[in-house]
């Protein structure tokens, strides 16, 4: 029963998304990306743009990411070992 409902709902959702999104695949990149490609090497000195973004332009995101990792580790230890005082 749930399976049938699930299929129906998901199909409706799929039709919705595909009908309303006109996403073009493989076209030109956006404004931000052009700026990265233009300035990336000169500003950060890293040839690999992913690195330059990860470790320089958006390092704040990366900081958040590591914190989440830290929280998860803490959480796992808390759940498994219990919350000792």
């Amino acid at each position: 029963m749930k399976g049938i409902i699930g299929i129906i709902i998901v199909l409706i959702l799929g039709v919705l998304i595909f009908s309303s999104l006109r996403l073009e695949y493989g076209n030109s990149v956006g404004i931000t990306a052009e700026m990265y490609i233009e300035k990336g090497v000169s500003e950060t000195g890293a040839v690999n743009l992913v690195t330059s973004i990860l470790a320089d332009y958006r390092v704040y995101d990366t900081l958040g990411e590591t914190i989440i990792l830290f929280i998860a580790i803490l959480g796992v230890s808390m759940v498994l070992k219990g919350d000792k005082k």
């Binding site: 990149v29 956006g30 931000t32 990306a33 990265y36 490609i37 990336g40 090497v41 040839v47 690999n48 743009l49 992913v50 330059s52 973004i53 990860l54 958006r58 995101d61 990366t62 958040g64 990411e65 590591t66 989440i68 990792l69 929280i71 998860a72």
Partner: peptide, 29 residues
């Protein structure tokens, strides 16, 4: 690949970076 090495077109490097973050978050959850 977005490794600057000459005058060609590159793919957008930003989504790759964002996805690195997302993957870690996903692993955590």
């Amino acid at each position: 690949a977005p490794i600057v090495s000459g005058d060609t077109t590159y793919v957008d490097p930003l989504p790759h970076t964002l996805m690195l973050t997302t993957i870690v978050v996903e692993v955590c959850t």
